[in-house]
Amino acid sequence: MCLAVPAKVLELRDDNMALVDISGTQREISLMVLDGDAAPGDFVLIHVGYAIEKIDEEEAARTLAMFEELSMLDEQLPEGEDPLA
C-alpha cells in the first residue's frame, strides 16, 4: 500500500500536473504535495498518483559508495585467510 515507484519527470503540465515515465510507461501525475519544484529530468517518487518526494541522486551515489567501501574492506580480507598468519 505504501509502495512508491521512481519516475522521471518528462513534462510539466497545467494544474500542477506532470507527465512522467515510470519504467517505460507514461502517466500523468500530480505535483500538488511535492515539497519544492520538479523539472523535466528530475527523478521523483510516485505514490497513488502523486509525487511525494524527489529522489536525490547524489545522495544515492553517496550511499552506494558507502556500501562499496565496506565491501572493499571485506575483499581485502577474504574469508578464511588470516592476514596476520
Binding site: P6, K8, F43, I55, E57, A60, A61, L64, F67, E68, L70, S71, D74, E75, E79
Partner: peptide, 20 residues
C-alpha cells in the same frame, strides 16, 4: 536510473550478508 538500479547489485549484497 542506473545509480538507483545498483541497489539490487548482488556483489554488494553478498558483502553485507557476510558482515551480518
Amino acid at each position: 536510473m542506473s545509480v538507483l538500479h545498483q541497489f539490487r547489485d548482488s556483489t554488494r549484497a553478498q558483502a553485507i550478508i557476510e558482515r551480518i
